[in-house]
Design a protein around this nucleic acid. Structure first.
Lengths: 279, 279
DNA sequence: TTATTCTTGAAAAATATTTTCAAAAACGGA
DNA sequence: TCCGTTTTTGAAAATATTTTTCAAGAATAA
């Protein structure tokens, strides 16, 4: 069973403006929505009943009432921890809230991930001559983090956060290379473009994104879905970033698990790092 | 709140014949009822809509829809234990394990974090002329990620992953600057050295590390503890990395929460990023 | 039996939801 | 820029659902 809130978040970028209003309201005030009629919701979300109707259909329900029933089910299952304070009144509350969000994000992630896709991606990477990670902004840092761990296990891997470099590297790819585009929303032009270029010259392309139906996910050969950007999350989209990292970790762990040689490599790297450490 | 089914049973003898039909149907086929309209239920129970309406009122609901929502809640809580393990290939198990570790890591984190320290660090950063993040290897990527989000909220912040640059920048710091050293273990010589240099010229120093009693944590003015590197974690030290990110997110969220101006900056940055995205 | 009350469902009224359709907005090409 | 096309949207119409009203018929009591 798919989570409604999750689906609303991951489809978010593919929604029309009026539908986004509905999604916003739903994500922020799901508890209220279960008591609303379609008319109430329309009024509160600031759109027409027709838009609500279209929205719930996009989420996969044929009728508003089905949507509502599923939402009630979902919320009642999440509700086990009654006393979650939503409005932070102090730094301690704020921190507690962020931790809660982080945990929730991880739990969501386990529903999003398809082990077969992870395995496929891991196999591609392991079999590739080179793997390139493309991402800009914060996703660029994630890409670099991923690369820094992949090289540790002996994968020839490079991350590029500069769009120019991305296009240059992308255009020099071969069918023996794998390119991974990282973007929370899946709507970043530079990343999409660079991945396209690589795909055109025959490289295998993978996206790590929270955006279902996003431009990026439509371009690539394989999509690994991470948690979509939630409004309630911290400023830094902690949840979304953590889950991108988690996807990378899953890839890496899978590669290691399936390849004997990696384990030797890790040991070798660990030894090489010893002089960099104290005691 | 009382159980609906229970109430229907206990009120049973006080019900009128037509209402008993409804109660019978409800008690035996509750799972179906949640998908029924009042008309469907009337037909299936063998009475009129009016009788249904009266029945649910007797149960304490003013409207049929309220009754239905409560029923859905009740039933979904009953069938809670749905831990269905699907085709556990090796990779699926591996992924499940990693997610579990991630959740555990977050929960641990809430015990590690001291809100007062977070607040102090946030205040330092907010009051500083510049903030510098130092880290090498994977921690360098985390540092860069942190910087990329901090600049978004208007903090003058730079990350350096190159030890040479770190020392250069560190030696040029002033007491109006804050330096944050990032290292999971807290034993990385380059990071420690760079932070020392900055401290010597009067900068405020913070460590984000999982290493209690580690060389790095002994050097700095303030330590923000992240989850220590667990051996059981994924190769990429997912748990440790996530928690470093979480610490950064807490810092950032705290700064935003305490500073009105940040919110305007975020809005401004969001606007500037629009042309970088597709639709 | 007959008057009275109670129970019930049909139908009316009120609400709620879905569909249709044309206006308005956004987009794309020249 | 303009103009034609497509997309998005909400008003209103068409349906569907729910609630209320009310009178017929059943049950009860005298």
């Amino acid at each position: 069973m798919d989570s409604i809130l999750l689906k609303a978040k991951s489809l978010y970028e593919a929604l029309k403006p009026s539908e986004k209003k509905v999604a916003n309201y739903l994500i922020q005030r799901a508890d209220d929505v279960i008591h609303f009629s379609i008319t109430d919701l329309a009024e509160n979300a600031g759109c027409s009943e027709a838009s609500i109707s279209r929205f719930v259909r996009k989420l996969g329900f044929s009728k508003f009432i089905d949507f509502k029933i599923s939402l009630v089910k979902e919320l009642s299952l999440l509700e086990d921890k009654q006393n979650v304070k939503n409005d932070a009144t102090g730094v301690a509350d704020l921190i507690h809230h962020l931790v809660q969000q982080g945990v929730k994000s991880y739990k969501e992630l386990s529903q999003l991930v398809n082990p077969l896709d992870i395995e496929k991606a891991a196999d591609w990477i392991a079999a590739s001559k080179h793997t390139f990670l493309f991402g800009v902004g914060s996703s660029g840092s994630i890409a670099e983090l991923g690369a820094s761990i992949l090289v540790r296990i002996g994968v020839s891997c490079f991350a590029y956060a500069d769009p120019h470099m991305q296009v240059i590297v992308g255009s020099n790819c071969t069918p023996e290379d794998t390119v991974i585009g990282v973007s929370v929303s899946g709507t970043i032009k530079d990343t999409i473009k660079s991945v396209q270029v690589a795909k055109n010259v025959g490289a295998k392309t993978i996206a790590i994104t929270g955006g279902k139906e996003s431009p990026l996910s439509k371009e690539v050969d394989l999509v690994l879905y991470s948690s979509p950007q939630g409004f309630e999350a911290g400023i830094g989209s902690l949840g979304a970033r953590s889950s991108q990292m988690a996807i990378l970790d899953m890839l890496i762990s899978t590669i290691v698990w399936k390849n004997e040689t990696c384990r030797n490599t890790i040991e070798k790297v660990e030894q090489a790092l010893v002089p960099k450490r104290f005691s």
